[in-house]
Design a protein around this nucleic acid. Structure first.
Lengths: 369, 369
DNA sequence: TTGTAAGCGTTATCAT
DNA sequence: ATGATAACGCTTACAA
């Protein structure tokens, strides 16, 4: 009997400390060791098939482990290895695009043995900061972040970097932060949509852009502006509306657009939600798509092909983007190259549908959904 | 110099073990203790404002902690307290309803100091089991679960209960499992929708029900059947279609329904996605809502008021339900009553819109969105 | 082939 | 008012 008293103390303390917990105590290595009259280290090694353990011992240990449903305690491991095998994901919301991306991230992460902790900032800067702090406290192995539309200052992100914690930005990438990232070629998206409208003969093309400080909005708009100029069309400030990613705002903005003396004959909205808002306003006004007015959205959400008329939209491959992001993140984690600055850019594709197709060409036919 | 060698060993081991990690080592209590020539315990107590620590000491400790950006290591705490302050949430997908519910869960959990780990089973039984296992390994303090549509066997859920780990079921509640739960009064939902259609004078009311083994489908259908009988309408088997929660299936099912010799003059779909699928098929057939055919959906998703005609739908208060679920869970965690079997049932409300409103009554006017 | 002991970061108990 | 120690569950260098 080498140490009977400490053992007793342990039991007592446990009862005192943990009386409020009614969960069953998990089997530990020590339980197996005591039962088999072995030391903890032997059991540990046997479990992990160390070469220097007798085969019989291994068998006995494994058999008992199985019987007692032994599961290594992740907390202890994490404390020891300083790795939680957890990725903190911060996203602004859980709309169609983001939740599809999260699905992609999840899939890859799981396969690589990582668990994902998803926090929504709800497009709020304050909540994004809180989320960052919490995930930092949770000792996640790294961050995958898409910033909120309110976020204009990036100290919380820089804090992650200062702590040398792996970070990948996705979708809503930030210029001020230098780190690996995955994003859509948003300019190309704007170009695709706008050029298509120009090709269809629309002349006064308005854009419902998102919040002004959001890169994805500005890039899509940049594509829009470039395309107008390229086709000799003069951009008109009154045709450029900044509004929240929100069908309600889009609805109202469209109403105003249509009430102008020289209303637009086409609208490019940088999200499908906004496209639906716009569509509502257009229908209310009694205008026909695509004849009176053309409409192109962004994201290629399933709903675009379900409404009538179906809405042309720019596909951004959200699921693939999510997967690519997680892959990049995991590569980064496993590489020694601390500051591998890869930027993955996904190319969008336009799906042409009824809302904007007034000229039927071969090209359109190939492109259509 | 009481122990110079162990300290050295420590540094060496750290470098060996953790050279693959380039994260900065976090400040620990020990760092502060060494710097201030105090013991770990004193620092620990000072940090937590123990009454028996000298004020100067406290000040010094706190100042240094601040300066070094000290954060208590959650892993160590969790290991000690056997509490991770983490809730495992398993959901079948991230559609509008579920993501709204998750938002509600998140909000309450965060406030109570819990972090949420969300796993999607993607409506797959296999993935649900994997998720359960992973969250169990992650030592979550408890589970909040909504089962997949494929799940017909519940051993994995029972395993959670056998381990005496707190469990709350929500939305898709399972009869075979006895535990606290939060759900919609789905029968009432079915009744609301069906009675409304009857009141509007529809006679041949079809239902697009969900998967057969899903409780929420069956309950909504039960409400439908009850209401028909109550109004002296004979249920017709051909008017009852089981199909996946999916606009595509709903679209095809509706097409078949409309192709019948005696087609329905109203359709109740138990989700809005399905309602949109149905609507597509109806429009394709050239039928007018609400005159030729009535349509009522379920969930009251924003899209219902955005399509034309807008779709009547049963509101299930998803956000509130999520909040209620998390509250119940946390209550349960803090109560000694291990098996507090509360069942919270949320009452649905019908929002009447264009797709089914062919008689305008006072009551309708009050109810409409 | 196996056991011992130290350490990951923290707190509670007991001693000083 | 402060320190020493053991413990949470695990791994590993070193000793036997």
């Amino acid at each position: 009997m080498p140490e009977p008293v400490p053992e007793l103390c342990r039991r007592i303390r446990q009862n005192e400390l943990f009386s409020h917990l009614y969960m069953e105590r998990q089997t530990t290595i020590k339980d197996i060791a005591v039962a088999l009259r072995l030391s903890k280290s032997t059991v540990s090694r046997a479990l992990r098939d160390a070469p220097d353990i007798k085969i019989e011992t291994k068998k006995a240990v494994k058999a008992l482990a199985e019987e007692l449903d032994y599961q290594p305690n992740k907390l202890a491991l994490s404390l020891l290895n300083r790795q939680t095998h957890t990725i903190g994901v911060i996203i602004p919301n859980l709309d169609y695009v983001l939740s599809t991306m999260v699905k992609g991230i999840d899939e890859v992460a799981l396969e690589a043995g990582y668990t994902v902790m998803v926090c929504q900032s709800d497009e709020s800067f304050g909540r994004e900061i809180v989320n960052t702090k919490r995930l930092l406290e949770s000792l996640v192995d790294g961050f995958i972040v898409s910033v909120s539309s309110e976020t204009k200052v990036f100290e919380h992100i820089k804090k992650i970097q200062n702590k040398k914690i792996p970070l990948v930005l996705f979708d809503r990438v930030v210029n001020h932060i230098s780190c690996p990232s995955v994003r859509l070629d948003n300019i190309a998206g704007g170009v695709l949509a706008t050029q298509h409208l120009v090709d269809q003969g629309y002349k006064r093309i308005a854009i419902l852009a998102g919040p002004e400080n959001l890169n994805i909005s500005n890039k899509r708009m940049e594509g829009y502006l470039q395309t107008l100029k390229l086709n000799g069309l003069r951009p008109d400030k009154r045709m450029i509306i900044h509004c929240d990613f929100n069908q309600q705002y889009a609805y109202e903005a469209t109403k105003e657009l249509l009430a102008m003396k020289q209303p637009p004959d086409a609208i490019f909205t940088i999200s499908d939600r906004m496209a639906i808002g716009a569509m509502l306003a257009i229908k209310e006004k009694g205008l026909q798509m695509p004849d009176d007015i053309g409409l192109v959205g962004f994201n290629n959400e399933p709903v675009t092909s379900l409404v009538s008329p179906s809405i042309s939209s720019v596909e951004m491959y959200a699921f693939e983007m999510g997967k690519a992001t997680a892959k990049l993140f995991i590569e980064m984690l496993n590489s020694d190259d601390t500051m591998a600055h890869q930027e993955i850019v996904i190319k969008p594709k336009l799906f042409i549908r009824e809302s904007s197709k007034r000229i039927i060409t071969k090209k359109d036919r190939n492109n259509s959904a």
